[in-house]
Design a binder for these strands. Structure first.
Lengths: 242, 242
DNA sequence: TAGATTGTTAATCGATTAACAATC
DNA sequence: TAGATTGTTAATCGATTAACAATC
């Protein structure tokens, strides 16, 4: 199988998990093969885009046949690195941190959260579904000794960069950031930031656009109605166009 | 102030909340004005892009001066609709739902969560920081009677579309979706999906790319070293280029 | 006024879509 | 083989960057 080595655009990468989700659904339904055309009508990307995307990584299909659902699922999983295991720590065991951890433990196979870290003495010593909550001061030591791959940052804005610095110093390979800040990390560390409030603001924008559209439409309908009534009031053919 | 009416691309919209976050930081620091060039070095977009983005909505700047930090903050907030209030309900009061609600209540001014809905009888009748947890069967009725704007979906995959259907039927204007599914909603309803696992998978991909890059580099360094040692072993000037 | 910086048009770059030859 | 569908090249579309005239 041929591999291309050009840099893959981020737009493509963001689509891969979605392809994978739909492939899981197809597997559940027992579907064995799918053409780019069928996949297109399911997932909403053009068939052309699907073929282009996949061909960034190899020739996964077969002319005249399509793509094997199992095969494609395995390929995409491997491309995303989901055939590997990851050791993770959580920093900030508040509501959001605890929820994200539970969510990850239950839904994400291969992503193992092994410890949480806190500054709050009321939480240190407790646990989140079996994950011990340790003292934040011991973070660097723990990450180094236990070869942690990923740090999940769920602390408040002000401390997020300091947490990231410690994690990078201690040698993590990736950071999953839920704080509101845009972190700075060295080039060797991968960073994925989930700015929840940004998504809410984007939602608010789109709601307002739709509201304005609806108002505009209502206004036009009203005008049309008024015009009609005027026409009715005037004698038929009264005001000619000329 | 002139307003353009062409459709704004989604790429622009996604940048607006980020501009706003940086403007808040500038306000905190007491900065009163900023040029697109200064803003660029802060936020990481090009000065040209910043001016283009803002000019989609109006002439917010002043030649020879720059942009007023307060003024721009207010404009962007208004564009995003953050000068309004929103009534919200949560559907699915599990770990993630509760955490998202608490997060939203505490951090997002203007977004009011007024009720949560559950099918689990152990949760119905309890509350989340003062928000009552009600019976899911009463959702439509409650949304209609209380003019709810936004529904937050934090239920499991299988039920998400059904929840969305009920919310849309009851008349919400927007849905903030945390389920794993890509929901179908009528055109009049705004939808923002936060696929947390997709972001984790994207992180895994980038980690693996960086790992491969590092391995490649290490391999090259080793080869270079081997070559050097061979050269050292051979007599100086032994193998000439000619 | 001169200098600075915007708003906006033009040029470039990149991503998506269309078309079709290759091939199963 | 004929039909179907991929892989890939070419065309189009859209977004970003550069350049500069307008103007504070």
């Amino acid at each position: 199988m041929r591999r291309k080595n050009a840099k893959i655009s981020n737009a493509v990468i963001r689509r891969l998990p979605r392809y994978r989700r739909y492939l899981i659904e197809l597997q559940k339904k027992g579907v064995e093969k799918i053409s780019s055309k069928e996949f297109s009508s399911l997932i909403g990307y053009t068939a052309s885009q699907i073929r282009q995307d996949l061909n960034n990584f190899g020739d996964f299909g077969q002319q005249g046949y399509g793509y094997s659902v199992d095969g494609l699922y395995n390929e995409i999983s491997a491309i995303l690195g989901l055939d590997k295991e990851y050791e993770m720590v959580l920093i900030g065991a508040g509501n959001l941190g605890q929820a994200i951890s539970k969510y990850t433990i239950h839904i994400q196979q291969g992503f193992n959260i092994v410890a949480a870290f806190e500054v709050n003495p009321d939480l240190i010593g407790k646990d989140v579904e079996g994950i011990p909550i340790l003292d934040y001061e011991d973070l660097v030591d723990y990450v180094e000794k236990n070869d942690i791959d990923i740090g999940i940052i769920c602390v408040n804005q002000g401390n997020a960069q300091e947490v990231a610095d410690r994690l990078c110093f201690a040698g993590v390979k990736g950071i999953w950031n839920y704080s509101l800040v845009d972190l700075e990390v060295p080039g060797r560390v991968a960073l994925e930031s989930v700015h929840l409030s940004d998504t809410l603001h984007s939602l608010a924008y789109h709601m307002n656009v739709k509201r304005k559209e609806a108002e505009e439409k209502a206004r036009e309908a009203e005008e049309a109605l008024e015009k009609e009534e005027k026409t009715k009031a005037a004698p038929a053919g009264g005001q000619a166009q000329a």
